[in-house]
Computed example of a mutant assay.
Amino acid sequence: MPEAKETVLEIDLGALAHNYRYLRAKIDDGVKFLSVVKAFAYGNDSVIIARKLEELGTDYFAVAYVEEGIHLRKNGITKPILVLHPQFTHFEDIIEHCLEPNLYSEKILRSFVETAEAKNQKNYPVHIKLNTGLNRLGFDHPEIGTVKEIISSTSSLKIASVFSHLAASEDWKERDFTVGQIDLFRKMTWELIADLDYEPILHICNTSGVINYPKSAFSMVRSGIGLYGYGNDKNIDPELRPISTLKTIISQIRSLDKGDTVGYNRAFKVEKPTRIATLPLGHADGINRIYGKGKAGVFINGQYAPIAGNVCMDIIMVDVTNISCEEGDEVIVFGGPQHPVKFAEAGGTISYELITGIQRRVSRLVIPE
Rank of each mutant, 00 (worst) to 15 (best):
K247E: 06
D237V: 11
S251I: 06
E239H: 11
R241H: 10
C205H: 09
K247A: 01
I253E: 04
L240E: 08
A217P: 02
L192V: 06
I236G: 10
R275T: 03
Q252D: 10
R222S: 11
L281I: 14
S208H: 04
P200A: 04
D195M: 07
K258I: 05
M220R: 09
Q252M: 05
S216L: 01
E239L: 13
S216I: 02
Y213Q: 07
A277D: 09
Y264R: 15
P238W: 15
E239N: 12
L281D: 02
T248F: 00
A267S: 13
N206H: 04
I211K: 01
H203R: 02
D233I: 08
R222M: 09
S216F: 08
F268R: 02
A217C: 10
R275L: 12
C205P: 03
S244N: 02
T207A: 00
A217F: 00
I204C: 06
L196P: 02
T248Q: 00
D195R: 08
H203Y: 12
P273F: 01
N232K: 11
G259M: 10
S244G: 13
R222I: 04
D285G: 10
T207E: 06
Y213E: 07
D285P: 07
A267G: 08
I211H: 08
A277I: 08
K272L: 03
L192M: 13
A284S: 15
D260I: 14
I276V: 13
G229K: 12
V270F: 09
R222C: 08
V270T: 08
P273S: 06
G282D: 13
T274C: 03
V270Q: 09
V262N: 01
E271N: 10
Q252R: 15
M220E: 09
T261G: 03
Y264K: 14
C205L: 11
L281R: 05
A284L: 15
P242A: 09
G224T: 14
F268K: 05
N232Q: 11
P242L: 08
G282W: 10
V270C: 09
V262D: 00
D257M: 15
Y213C: 08
Y213K: 07
K269F: 13
D237S: 12
Y264I: 11
R222N: 09
L256T: 11
G263Y: 06
S255W: 05
V270D: 08
G209C: 11
I225V: 13
Y213I: 05
R254V: 11
T248I: 02
I201Y: 01
I236P: 08
I193N: 05
I225G: 02
K258C: 05
N235W: 12
A194P: 00
Y264S: 13
A284V: 13
T274F: 03
S219Y: 02
D257R: 15
T245P: 00
L256W: 13
L246F: 00
K272I: 00
L281T: 04
D257S: 15
G263L: 02
L246C: 03
